[in-house]
Design a binder for these strands. Structure first.
Lengths: 83, 83
DNA sequence: TTGGTATATCGGGAAAAGTCGATATATTTG
DNA sequence: CAAATATATCGACTTTTCCCGATATACCAA
């Protein structure tokens, strides 16, 4: 999912009918591509969010998720320096 | 354990009586510090070795493990570029 | 307010990982 | 070869993680 979100336009074409890509991609789009149930995907996204790798924005009945690039940079540096 | 192996002289003083630090640290030293059973530590080290994070060298009845710094650098770069 | 849609949360069963004791293998020493 | 020591492997049990269906919550439209 994290890799998919690097190129939302390519990986989630259906998102066009759901408000575009400004805020990210909504859960239903990710669920369809992942082939897992709605509850599983929702929980997974919430874990990634708590871990800081993605950000959530609620707009109406949709929740949009997008990557937080800083977290990946920080993880990479953490491995370099602390591990 | 991976962090411990960054400074073997400091973290495994008992290793002095087991051939020094040239080849790394032997399993018994790591086991004592970890506070886990011998079998658990042995299996754990073998997993880290298969993953490429440490290297093993058998000398007599001892197996010495030391870090493979290249693997950490590679992981850090992988996160930067692929994740 | 009622029904429809999108997402989140909850509880449980299945799968995987962690840990142990017992035992096997390899090496050294007498 | 026999005993001692260091490490590896095996089988079982426990804990954690994964994933699901059911249900709850939030929002929108009629």
């Amino acid at each position: 999912m994290l890799e998919w979100l690097k190129d939302p336009e390519f990986n989630f074409p259906g998102q066009l009918e759901h408000g575009g890509f400004e805020h990210g991609v909504c859960v239903g789009q990710i669920q369809a591509k992942a082939g897992l149930t709605q509850s599983t995907v929702s929980e997974y996204l919430s874990i990634l969010q708590r871990a800081g790798f993605i950000e959530a924005k609620r707009v109406g009945q949709w929740t949009y998720y997008k990557r937080n690039e800083g977290a990946f940079e920080a993880l990479s540096k953490l491995i370099q320096t602390n591990l």
